[in-house]
Design a protein around this nucleic acid. Structure first.
Length: 256
DNA sequence: GAATATGTTTAAAT
DNA sequence: CATTTAAACATATT
């Protein structure tokens, strides 16, 4: 469900709604993916204040007290839901705050991964990557650009959907060889990463308000099985790149 | 019933 | 060694 813009908005909403509250009780429903025993996690976090929530790459990081961090990766189908009267299905973790409110991490696929005190990443976040670092990342690479953009060991935060949107925005074919893209287009691509992600954050934030909703992707230009034409009328074509479906148009320039 | 779905890890193949 | 590919994960939707 969630890629970088959704997660950025979720972290803002969680900070607004639960920031400053003391975690009264943590239910660990599914501990298979957890890097510490469930008891240790509870002992670490219960009774401590949620100071803020930030996003890093495709993870949400809940900061408790001064420096205790619980990282959460939602993987393919994970979601964050506010607690209501009904107990959530497919829960992984349930957070109950002193105020009586709370939220849950759910994932019907049980792949969402909580990590206590995750090691700090040395891979740059997509929104923090400088142009010179980006240029260096592409130079000499034989990988197709779409695969490189989604490679979390090179830059963090871009997934299949936004990868397509960014390449469409930049006018570059997803099949282009990374190292063959000329400097002007690399510059454009770097700009597109920022502008596509940041405008998505604004749109999702505006539509979400304080609600934890997912799947607000009405603004997608090319990525989606239902999109037959772009708003400019270009035909959208799809192909598999690295086992996942990519959507693009013939107007995107191929460098190879 | 079959195909598809937003991600990652691992192993095997090229 | 660098890169690519397939499978697995568990369930819902079309």
């Amino acid at each position: 469900m969630a890629e970088l813009p959704d997660l950025e908005v979720f972290s803002q909403i969680l900070t607004r709604r639960y920031g400053g509250s003391v975690l009264e009780k943590l239910e660990v429903i599914e501990s298979r993916k957890l890097n510490v025993p469930a008891k240790a996690l509870k002992a670490c976090l219960e009774g401590h204040k949620l100071s803020r929530v930030i996003r890093s790459g495709k993870t949400i990081q809940l900061v408790f007290g001064p420096d205790r961090v619980l990282g959460i990766h939602l993987m393919l189908r994970g979601e964050l839901v506010a607690l209501s009267s009904a107990s959530p299905r497919f829960a992984i973790l349930i957070f109950h705050f002193h105020s009586g409110e709370g939220f849950a991490v759910v994932d019907m696929q049980k792949q969402a991964t909580p990590t206590l005190d995750p090691p700090s990443a040395d891979v740059p976040d997509a929104l923090e990557l400088s142009y010179s670092a980006f240029k260096k990342l592409l130079s000499g690479k034989k990988m197709v650009i779409k695969t490189l953009l989604m490679d979390q060991k090179k830059l963090r935060g871009i997934g299949n959907s936004y990868g397509d949107e960014i390449l469409y925005h930049a006018g570059i074919s997803p099949f282009s060889i990374a190292g063959k893209i000329p400097e002007d287009s690399v510059k454009q691509l770097h700009k597109s990463i920022h502008s596509v992600l940041e405008s998505a954050i604004k749109k999702i934030a505006g539509e979400n308000g304080d609600e934890l909703r997912g799947e607000l992707r009405d603004f997608m230009e090319v990525h989606g099985a239902k999109i037959k034409n772009t708003r400019k009328g270009e035909e959208v074509i799809s192909d598999k790149i690295g086992g996942r479906t990519s959507y693009y148009t013939r107007s995107q320039v191929l460098f190879s």
